[in-house]
Design a protein around this nucleic acid. Structure first.
Length: 1106
RNA sequence: AGUCCCGUAGCUCAGCUGGUUAGAGCACUACACUGAUAAUGUAGGGGUCGGCAGUUCAAAUCUGCCCGGGACUACCA
């Protein structure tokens, strides 16, 4: 029979390689699903990564979390399908293609055809697929890579169309002309997601101006001119002076108080009256010069001012003013008047907001509400259109990196200053969004877009969100909840090339719109178009148009046009769909639902579990949720883990630029996936950021895997000698020694804890608990104390019990760690099981989660063992204090006992302790002898509630209780005392009674436990100590001599006064320990080895018996 | 600017619903032990629990404000 595999060293990477090959050959992953056929599914959705970039170490983190719960659920008996996916559309792909080809957006369709361009994107997008798959295998992430969903797939797109059509039919898809972030440099609108790439908002210094808008004196405004004949101006602040030519209104807050102030223009010194929010006066005027003499020179600081009147914003409603920069006038509505809006604040500016409907969304809203006209005097390239005087053709920001660039912001301010239209011009530092791709400032610009009316389902989305189990909870209620509360409609349109085309066909006059929900639908529309065309005598070649259906991307789809029944030509709206729609619709699209797999979909919706980075909260987590709510009035996922970032060891973000990023392949190659995964999961909660330190992986490897490996090797070594293969009947637990019962009890508790933690998506606690069990309890206590049981004596029931116990612990551990460290776990499982054949699973990942047995949990035993460990630790520390090595036996330890339960607890573990600390006996000291002095201490928790304010005084009283008082308390279970002159009865259970030091002994204590050690060494103890020392040296000689553990030996020792008696008295012991068949004392030994035994040189010859 | 998370030993982190010597591992130092040996044990130093206030008999723990780090959100003129 071949025994348990023994190992020379722990080499995780090569072990993983081997296990990985085994999984592949035996199709273990496939079996982990197929063997669960018919079982309850546990539905997991894989968030699709984009394979146009290399995977990073944070992907290992994210995937470790996903993998561990899927594996765990499999062990629990669920069937866990894991379809992989690739996110293939979107700007990042397009941009890297542009970069590769050295082109810009404007070149597409000119220098390169859309067809070629998109073909390039298709190639680019899976550029690193190999690397991703390699990482997947290497890190042991189990996901079905053979049948991934790919978002550029026609089938996938068809489902997206279906979803869009559903929304369209429900009236949840609409077209709107709105103000959106727009990057003139990139020539595209930007999504909020893109705008919120890290670093997009940057502190910039802009030239800002408080402009003067001259009030028209008429019926409405005459209250402003009542006292004075001076011109009156509204003061309005802007950080974007370039929008001033497009100003068509001013917005005030209806309830905000405004003041009319008499003063001078600081630049021209022309006497003026100005209007601004009362609470902001101090921002522009110094209190020193209030009501000063009305005299001012340009450039001086002493600007006199005087409040003439104060009124509410609503009084200004409808007041007209003269256009500030009259280059062009709006034709689409009223203009140049004051309106009221609730968004106005008095935090900065003047409380009067310059309103340019084309360049701000609040502005746009005001324009809609008050039917204001608009001026769009900047084109899509970001330059002023013709007809804006000297500014015509100028770029509003330096988009072209022109060295001689002059900012229109500055020029406009200069102009306004000269014309007595600027009250204050200054540089101002503020956050402003920039295009993440071009680094250039974004402007807000009116664009036509299609929206999903997510606001319609806002309340429902919030309700459904409350049913989702978020880890951590705060992300769900806080970050996600707040986001839902402030929900805006979802802007779907993207004017790009590589992505899912919007399935909308429109007539040129925009009166007719068709939304297509499937390829069949489109075919039908094409056939209908042919009929309609015939009716109107138009040409329409069904064949050539249908030829464009093979690939639903642009440009083919754009070539399809339709003819409506009124004879109008309908062309496709050229926009693409936001890529987040792609991934948000993956629950449906991954199955090509509803065109195929209806049942499969029904079984796999919603997901039980998803996990991604916290940065996906407003990304994937949102789009999944929004679409599920809108389409199915359901959540898309029931449990979601949002993990934090992986930072470098100093807590900085990893970036290629800083050179502090960690290569996942290198890490996995060097340390292995198991150690890396274990480190990541154990080091910090998944939702906290991980400060990734390579040294931590090393520690995990040594501390955890090293210990576990050592424990296994220890087991294998002796089990092989004894040919233990678990063929014997199970030794009943109650027939096994206490220590076996104890470790089994702990093991049961461990399984329970770990199981609960995994169920609650708390992997970190689970992993730490396992680690503690393996290190502290299994290795450093159980194995350490039981070593002799394994290598001493015959193959008795006790020995079998020891093997069975340790085997069970190891096998159970292999199952518990399988979700987190799948390779090592499987190796351990297979190595154990291949000899015992106790289980019939081929791999730990096909095995079932261990059962727990509450009857095997014995908390009083666990408590006892804790006492044993404490006593041992105290005795060892005492030995250390007096410098007596453990090999030197001592007579006794003494322990004061204050009650009988404690005494019986110690008696039960007496033998363990005695052999552990090498002492002959435990002596119990009771207070009957009067040796120990009792003390009492308040139980703060109990007494605090009872006494409240008197707690402190009571504690002081109790600690001073004398022996008599304590005796009374113990006898009567209560004692009456005076606390702050109040009579109070203190109950026995409200105090803790402990003993003070034992006078005259070497004592040590831990909390209430006190241990004293008798350190007198008699001659026989000394001899025994010598014997043990000698045995130790002989064992070393055996080992150095390369003897096998089971080899028998012959021993000769040269006589020496120091050792003669020892050998005489302990001959049998010595021989037994070192497996000597013969021990001879000789007068003189030549060629002998000299060993020091307790400082005396002893000559010895040790020979292997042939 | 708002929302959320984090701040405990040199490092990485525990410390649950407030309760009296604030813990563990790593690292460091010293000493032991050892047929699990590229392990193990014991002891030691090292903390104003980010700061300030409040609630309470009692605060690392609850509340408020502030500081520092991070994430997310944001047209704030």
């Amino acid at each position: 029979m071949s025994g348990y595999k023994e190992y020379k060293s722990l080499d995780l990477p090569s072990l993983e390689n081997e296990v990985g090959k085994f999984w592949e050959e035996k199709k273990i992953f496939e079996k982990s699903i197929s063997t669960r056929d018919g079982k309850e599914p546990f539905v997991f959705y894989e968030g699709p990564p984009s394979a146009n970039g290399m995977p990073g170490i944070h992907h290992v983190m994210g995937r470790a979390i996903k993998d561990l719960f899927c594996r765990y659920k499999t062990q629990r008996g669920f069937q866990v399908n894991r379809k992989s996916g690739w996110d293939t559309h979107g700007l990042p792909v397009e941009l890297s293609v542009e970069k590769n080809l050295g082109i810009t957006k404007e070149d597409i369709g000119k220098k390169i055809s859309i067809e070629e361009y998109n073909a390039e994107c298709r190639r680019e997008v899976l550029k690193y697929q190999d690397a991703w798959e390699k990482l997947t295998h290497k890190m042991g992430y189990w996901v079905d890579l053979k049948n991934p969903y790919v978002t550029f797939d026609n089938n996938y797109i068809e489902t997206l169309w279906w979803a869009l059509k559903q929304l369209y039919d429900k009236g949840l898809l609409y077209e709107g002309y709105t103000i959106q972030p727009y990057s003139p440099a990139a020539g595209t609108g930007l999504s909020t997601h893109e705008l919120n790439q890290p670093g997009c908002y940057r502190l910039v210094k802009d030239t800002t101006v408080v402009a003067q808008f001259k009030v028209v004196n008429d019926e409405k405004s005459k209250f402003l001119f009542h006292d004075v004949q001076l011109p009156v101006y509204f003061l309005a602040w802007t950080t974007t002076p370039w929008t001033l030519p497009s100003n068509t209104a001013l917005t005030v807050g209806g309830e905000i108080e405004y003041s009319l102030i008499q003063t001078f223009n600081p630049y021209t010194a022309i006497p003026i009256n100005v209007i601004l929010a009362k609470s902001l006066i101090a921002k522009y005027f110094e209190s020193n010069f209030e009501n000063a003499e009305m005299k001012f020179e340009a450039g001086k600081k002493e600007l006199p001012w005087k409040v003439l009147s104060t009124f509410k914003g609503k009084d200004l409603d409808g007041v007209r003013y003269e256009q500030l920069l009259p280059y062009q006038q709006p034709t689409d509505g009223d203009a140049f008047k004051v309106v009221t809006g609730d968004f106005v604040t008095t935090e900065d500016g003047t409380g009067i907001v310059h309103t340019a409907p084309s360049f701000g969304s609040d502005d746009f809203r005001m324009a809609k509400k008050y039917n204001l006209g608009s001026l769009t005097l900047v084109d899509k390239q970001g330059k002023f259109v013709d007809g804006v005087g000297e500014f015509s053709g100028m770029y509003v920001k330096n988009y072209k990196d022109d060295k001689n660039y002059e900012s229109p912001d500055v020029l406009i301010c200069i102009k306004l200053k000269k014309e007595n239209k600027a009250f204050k011009v200054e540089k101002y530092e503020h956050n402003y969004p920039h295009c993440w791709r071009t680094d250039k400032p974004v402007i807000y610009y009116p664009l036509d877009s299609w929206f999903v009316k997510t606001t319609a389902a806002k309340d429902r989305m919030m309700e459904l969100n409350n049913t989702i189990n978020w880890k951590p909870e705060s992300t769900g209620t806080g970050r996600f909840g707040n986001w839902l509360e402030n929900l805006q409609d979802w802007n779907l349109s993207r004017s790009r090339f590589w992505g899912t085309p919007l399935p909308l066909w429109k007539s040129e006059d925009e009166t007719e719109v068709v939304c297509i929900g499937s390829i069949a639908d489109l075919k039908e529309q094409i056939n209908l178009s042919a009929e309609n065309a015939k009716q109107f005598g138009l040409e329409y070649d069904v064949q050539s148009i249908s030829g464009n259906l093979k690939d639903l991307h642009r440009p083919f789809i754009d070539r399809i046009y339709l003819i409506s029944k009124t004879g109008k030509k309908l062309s496709r709206t050229p926009d693409l769909v936001d890529v987040w729609f792609d991934s948000g619709a993956m629950p449906y699209a991954q199955w090509h639902f509803p065109f195929e797999n209806k049942e499969l979909f029904a079984k796999n919706f919603p997901a039980d579990f998803i996990a991604e980075g916290v940065d996906q909260t407003r990304g994937w987590f949102f789009t999944l949720h929004a679409l599920a709510t809108l389409l199915y009035d359901s959540v898309a996922y029931k449990n979601v883990v949002s993990n934090g970032l992986v930072l470098d060891k100093n807590g900085n973000k990893m970036s290629k630029r800083l050179g502090n990023s960690v290569d996942p392949f290198e890490t996995l190659d060097k340390y292995g996936a198991d150690a890396t995964r274990w480190y990541m999961i154990s080091n910090s909660q998944p939702w906290d950021n991980l400060k990734f330190d390579i040294a931590g992986i090393d520690e995990v490897k040594r501390k955890f895997f090293g210990t576990l490996y050592n424990t296994y090797n220890f087991f294998a070594l002796y089990a092989n000698i004894d040919k233990f293969n678990y063929s014997e009947d199970e030794v009943p637990l109650n027939k096994r020694p206490e220590i076996d019962q104890w470790i089994i009890s702990l093991l049961n508790s461990l399984v329970k804890t770990v199981q609960a933690d995994f169920e609650n998506y708390e992997p970190t606690h689970a992993v730490r608990t396992i680690q503690q069990f393996v290190d502290e309890h299994l290795s450093n206590w159980y194995v350490r104390l039981c070593r002799r049981r394994f290598w001493k004596g015959d193959y008795t029931e006790d020995k079998i019990a020891a093997y069975q116990t340790l085997y069970k612990c190891l096998l159970t551990i292999s199952k518990l760690i399988a979700p987190v460290s799948p390779f090592f776990a499987d190796k351990l499982y297979i190595d154990l099981n291949s000899v015992s054949k106790k289980e019939n699973a081929e791999s730990v990942h096909l095995s079932d989660w261990p059962e727990t047995n509450d009857k095997e949990i014995d908390s009083s035993l666990e408590e006892r063992m804790q006492i044993a460990q404490d006593i041992s630790s105290l005795v060892l520390s005492l030995r250390k204090k007096v410098n007596i090595k453990v090999r030197q036996p001592l007579n006794k330890i003494m322990i004061p006992v204050l009650n009988t339960t404690f005494k019986s607890q110690v008696e039960a573990i007496q033998d363990l302790v005695l052999s552990e600390v090498n002492v002959k006996a435990i002596e119990f000291i009771t207070d009957a002898e009067g040796v120990i002095k009792k003390k009492a201490k308040a139980n703060f928790k109990l007494l605090g509630q009872k006494l409240g304010k008197n707690m402190k005084a009571a504690a002081d009283v109790i600690i001073l209780f004398n022996q008599k008082e304590i005796a009374e308390l113990e006898k009567n279970k209560a004692i009456a005392v005076l606390i702050n002159d109040n009579p109070v009865e203190i109950l026995l259970e409200e105090v803790e009674i402990f003993s003070e030091d034992i006078p005259g002994w070497q004592v040590a204590n831990k909390n209430e436990l006190i241990v004293a050690l008798d350190i007198t060494i008699s001659t026989s103890l000394q001899e025994e100590g010598n014997a043990r020392e000698l045995v130790n040296k002989l064992q070393k000689m055996r080992k150095d001599g390369g003897f096998n553990i089971t080899d028998r030996v012959m021993l000769s020792i040269e006589k020496h006064d120091f050792i003669n008696a020892t050998i005489l008295n302990f001959k049998n012991y010595i021989c037994a320990e070192i497996l000597a068949d013969d021990l001879q004392m000789v007068e003189q030994l030549s060629d002998a080895e000299v060993v020091e035994v307790n400082d005396f040189p002893i000559k010895i010859i040790l020979k292997q018996k042939k």
